[in-house]
Amino acid sequence: MADIASTEAVHPAGLQHHFDSLEQQSDASTLGMWVFLVTEVLFFGGLFTAYLVYRSTYPDAFAVASKHTLIALGALNTAILITSSLTMALAVFASQEGNGKAVIRFLVMTWILGASFLVVKGIEYTTDFHDHLVPGAHFFIEGTNIGHAQLFFSLYFIMTGLHAIHMIVGLGILIVMMYMAGKGKFTKEYHIPMEVAGLYWHFVDIVWIFLFPLLYLIDRHK
């Protein structure tokens, strides 16, 4: 009780009224983000399940269809995202040091990398569209069952599309973080938002690390 009263008396910046200490607040926020990520895993998990079920039901059609994905762009995007994870980690580190300028610098780099990912993805989608790979009346792939191949591309678009939406949300979060860093909010003691944002960003990257082999690589040599 006594130490609670004394921390309340000091009341560090950023501490919300219903927490007793910054440490408690930081623990709660990080745990909250982890729980949220678990939710996300199950959200994507439903799609991965559907994908695995159909992949094992129609291995040939899926192998043929997956050869039509643009592996060069996919690989480029993988590299971009991994690099962005690095810059994000550096931004979080800078925030722990209370170095606002460095935080902004690394956040801007991360943002540009994230945006480039979306641009590349956009180019990829456009090419897919011209190649008649978008499910619907114009969908066409030679040499296999069209319905089954279309299943592959339906899942491809839903999975990468949902991932892209998460990327867009991530870019928004980065902007908020830049704003906070610009206001000098982050100090050695208080950098919870950056940690939480970092967790989110890495998670979205990891989803891609699973999507890339599943959609682009498996059975490609066949």
């Binding site: 729980v35 678990v38 939710t39 996300e40 199950l42 959200f43 994507f44 998990g45 439903g46 799609l47 559907a50 159909y54 039901t57 129609y58 059609a61 499910p135 619907g136 069952n145 319905g147 089954h148 279309q150 299943l151 339906s154 899942l155 839903i158």
Partner: peptide
């Protein structure tokens, strides 16, 4: 936390299937 996201994605697939006719739950197309 563990269950609801799966319902969410499932209902999303139903809606997507209705709007875009993807065939994910359509036996005629696999």
């Amino acid at each position: 936390v563990l269950g609801t996201p799966v319902l969410a994605i499932t209902l999303l697939l139903v809606a997507a299937e209705r709007l875009l006719h993807l065939g994910i739950f359509d036996p005629a197309r696999g």
